[in-house]
């Protein structure tokens, strides 16, 4: 029976691709911005944080609509992009990625910012007195110590972009093979009578992917802990 089932693998693949692109693009930006928000005080910080977090509380459809207003072919920036470079963003794969980034960014930045705040700035200061530049300190001290939170943010962003629906359908549309991600495919299948099994198959795949993502993050996190523990054990034996 499964063999006869027409599973929309394309949607699955597309979803994974959007999620991967999103996390890969959003993560470095979130790390830098998270550091700035955690460590620096500047004017307009509250406003900046509010803007970043807005998509978390706004209905995704609203976010998609605003994106359309800004980046659509007639939008503020979109118009200019189209006339100068001939680039059309709305209703394309890029639009699906942008929608997912905007929607998942608040989650990832929250996680990164909190984990960076947990890193004792005194340790960074100690690193500086030992001759390390700001950048070396960031790479050797801040990042490794904030790593669990950063990884958590990555998984959250990945999961959130997998499930992104509202902003995507508004800004990127529901184009088969280009912007029809897993949730959109499920929604489309649901509309057609008699496709219950196929719908269910997609739902199942969606659950499996989400589950796997969480298990993977747990695994990485624990592995890191374990490797530290086993090192400790070796050290103990040496000491004896």
């Amino acid at each position: 029976m499964i063999r006869n089932l027409a599973i929309d693998y394309q949607a699955v693949w597309l979803s994974l691709k959007v999620a991967l692109y999103t996390s890969a693009i959003a993560l470095p930006v979130a790390i830098l911005l998270g550091y700035v928000l955690a460590r620096k005080q500047f004017r307009g910080k509250v406003i900046l944080e509010a803007i970043i977090h807005l998509p978390m509380v706004m209905p995704p459809v609203t976010t998609g609509y605003l994106l359309l207003l800004i980046l659509g072919t007639n939008g503020i920036i979109g118009k200019w992009l189209f006339s100068v470079f001939g680039i059309r963003i709305a209703f394309s794969f890029s639009a699906a990625v942008i929608a997912a980034i905007v929607v998942s960014f608040p989650l990832i930045i929250r996680s990164v910012k909190v984990s960076m705040e947990m890193v004792d700035p005194n340790l960074e200061q100690a690193s500086r007195t030992l001759g390390a530049s700001w950048f070396k300190t960031f790479i050797l001290i801040t990042l490794p110590l904030a790593w669990p939170g950063i990884l958590g943010g990555f998984v959250l962003a990945f999961a959130r972009s997998l499930g992104e629906f509202g902003a995507t359908i508004t800004f990127a549309g529901n184009i088969q093979g280009e912007t029809r991600t897993l949730p959109l495919a499920i929604f489309s299948k649901m509309q057609v009578p008699g496709k219950e099994t196929e719908t269910f198959a997609l739902v199942a795949i969606s659950v499996i992917i989400s589950f796997a993502a969480i298990v993977a993050s747990e695994y990485f996190y624990r592995n890191k802990k374990k490797s530290k523990l086993s090192k400790k054990k070796i050290g103990y034996q040496n000491a004896e």
Binding site: D120, N122, L123, Q125, A126, S127, R128, T129, L130, G131, A132, S133, W134, I141, P144, L145, K228, K231, G235
Partner: peptide, 22 residues
Amino acid sequence: LATNKRHVGYVFQEGRLFPHFT
């Protein structure tokens, strides 16, 4: 001069060892 270019050793009261390093 930036802190890292001053060659000033600073030992803090709590030690401030890096917890992720041996």
